[in-house]
Design a protein around this nucleic acid. Structure first.
Length: 552
RNA sequence: GCCCCCGUAGCUCAGUGGAUAGAGCAGUCGCCUUCUAAGCGAUUGGUCGCAGGUUCGAUCCCUGCCGGGGGCACCA
């Protein structure tokens, strides 16, 4: 019996109690909430429905709880119902209705945890979108991990997801980039406002190696060649790094293409049609103050140049024209001033900023090493890159340690801790549980034990087994809420809890027979439970893009 | 000045109105003669920044204040 099944039982019980005249109530669809109680004494599931109905029913919550309990106890699969505290309903399930969860999980396999809660939603998920002028740094790494996990969780919840990376390959930063490469190649000092990282010299050398004739070009052509050559090399490098990291994009969208394809013009036309543009001081403005911005924004400068804001606006309209219902932007904290503006853009384009656009801000990641903060500055070159981080800690540890926290709160990581590959890092705790389970199955196979096709799952009545079954049943709800809230860290936290519950089960409940003893019905029931746990750990780690090792 | 994030155990952090506020690490004490001890058990540790308000009930929602971080452009 799943939590959703319990919800249905309670709803039916309320209806029966109302029909019997015990109290008066109207149930909305989401009124009945069932939770796993914190304390084992409170049964398998608990509901506060009586407390919620008390006011409108005009009766004390405990009286309502008693009436519901009376109707509920008759339902199949319910072993006992207690009314506790101010009026909580505490349910204990019959052992067999809890045990069948194990079978259901195993049979659903990789599909267990998926749902259709977001079915029909076509979502554009844009993240990282780094300039092609340097390596990916720590801020990008956070989104590479969390953004990818959000994509996986949304997909699991039934949404159609397109991951998109916007390439800022237009604008003055590209020229600065070119000038920096040119200077580095000819051994001259990099311009003061250029890019100073050590990678610039490497990039310049790579460009020269790929196109040796570049050194003989006249300065102007050479500048152009460095810009394009550097762009190609740097972009390819970013793509390779992300590929190695396990974060894959469906669309790499170039800002140049946005302009060359006419999308900018179309976007500006859409805004004009909606009537929110005006001309002043020779510039074209968007009246974002109509929707709460503190000031209007310029689209086309008085010198005829498009602003970056114009590109962003057109890009949003273009996404919508491509058929996306929801455009999610994952941005760094330094872009938070952009959130309000993007929302007004949606409003100016005639959309609903509450539903068509969503901007998530990733707060700063601070890295401590030997008690001191590692400072990050992209242009100065003192950066921790994604590649450095992965080289130091490995893909799994980096992905996991970033995605077990909500992205919208600042984060401090101890590099020493992560690189130490010690159990301090929860990813090892979770992966270890999976490795233990895999090992156990190898041992079972060696003993010639094959899971019985018709196990007696009612035998799973040990307290630790009930804990494990209850936790397994929660997984689909965890994934759905992670998707709805765009909070994949909930999956990670859940996995840590599940791993803990499994380790405690393992400690208390022997699975395989000792010595020459034969396999019993309990052995088989527990093997189903173990495989169900392994499936959920594997699926959950998969949602975070972290591997589920069979050996450690 | 205006806007955003944060303030929970010694440290790093979970906790989208419910029961006795949790985890890991750090500290203390135990458990390997059989499935991975990268594990398990026990124990120490809290005015949930402060003050009001809403509610049967607030760490959570609202208002104000205090403290820390980040952001404001006819830049990209």
């Amino acid at each position: 019996m799943t939590p959703d099944d319990v919800v249905v039982l309670i709803r039916d019980a309320v209806h029966r109690a109302v029909a019997a005249g015990d109290f008066v109530a109207e149930l909305t669809d989401d009124a009945v909430v069932v939770e796993r109680p914190k304390s084992r004494e409170h049964g398998d599931y608990t509901s506060n429905i009586a407390l919620r109905l008390a006011k409108s029913a005009g009766k004390p919550p405990r009286a309502i709880a008693d009436a519901i309990a009376k109707a509920l106890i008759e339902a199949d699969g319910i072993a006992s119902v207690d009314v506790a505290g101010p009026g909580f309903l505490n349910l204990t399930l019959a052992a067999d209705s809890l045990g069948v969860i194990a079978r259901s999980v195993v049979e659903q396999g990789r599909a267990y945890g998926t749902s259709s809660t977001l079915a029909g939603q076509n979502i554009n998920l844009e993240f990282i979108s780094a300039n092609p002028t340097g390596p990916l740094h720590l801020g990008h790494t956070r989104w590479a991990a969390v953004g990818d996990a959000i994509g996986r969780v949304l997909t699991a919840a039934g949404a159609q997801v397109t991951r998109e990376f916007y390439i800022n390959d237009r604008g003055v930063q590209m020229d600065l980039f070119a000038a920096s490469l040119q200077a580095a190649a000819s051994g001259e000092p990099v311009p003061a406002n250029g890019y100073h990282g050590e990678y610039i010299a490497d990039l310049a050398a790579q460009v020269v190696a790929a196109e040796p004739e570049i050194t003989r070009l006249n300065p102007q052509d050479q500048l152009l060649a460095f810009r394009e050559g550097g762009y190609r090399v740097q972009l390819a490098q970013q793509q390779q790094v992300l590929d190695d990291f396990g974060t894959h994009f469906d669309v790499w969208y170039s800002e140049r293409y946005l302009h060359s394809s006419g999308a900018v013009e179309r976007g500006l036309n859409t805004l004009k049609e909606q009537g929110h543009t005006f001309t002043e001081d020779g510039a074209l403005w968007l009246r974002t103050t109509d929707f709460g911005d503190d000031k209007d924004r310029v689209l086309i400068k008085s010198d005829g140049e498009l602003t970056y804001f114009a590109s962003d606006t057109a890009y949003y309209v273009d996404k919508r024209n491509r058929g996306f219902d929801v455009c999610i932007y994952l941005l760094g904290a330094d872009h938070h001033g952009y959130v309000g503006r993007l929302r007004t853009v949606a409003a100016c384009a005639g959309d609903d900023p509450e539903s068509n656009i969503e901007v998530l801000i990733g707060q700063l990641v601070k890295i401590m090493r030997d008690g001191a903060e590692v400072r990050l500055s992209k242009r100065a070159g003192d950066i921790v890159t994604l590649t450095d981080f992965v080289a130091a800690a490995g893909v799994d540890a980096v992905r996991y340690s970033l995605s077990r926290y909500p992205a919208d709160s600042p984060l401090t990581l101890d590099l020493g801790l992560i690189t130490r590959r010690s159990p301090d890092n929860p990813v090892f705790y979770v992966q270890y549980a999976h490795a233990r389970l895999s090992s156990l199955q190898r041992n079972a196979a060696e003993l010639g034990i094959v899971r019985a096709p018709e196990p007696n799952l009612a035998l799973l009545n040990h307290e630790r087994e009930a804990d494990l079954l209850g936790a397994l049943a929660e997984f689909p709800r965890v994934v759905a809420s992670a998707a709805n809230l765009r909070h994949p860290h909930r999956v990670a936290r859940y996995l840590e809890e599940l791993a803990g519950i499994y380790h405690r089960f393992y400690d208390a409940c022997r699975v395989l027979p000792m010595g020459d003893e034969p396999a019993t019905d309990l052995t088989h029931a527990r093997l189903w439970l173990c495989e169900a746990t392994r499936v959920v750990l594997s699926n959950g780690l998969g949602l975070l893009g972290v591997s589920a090792p069979e050996r450690m």
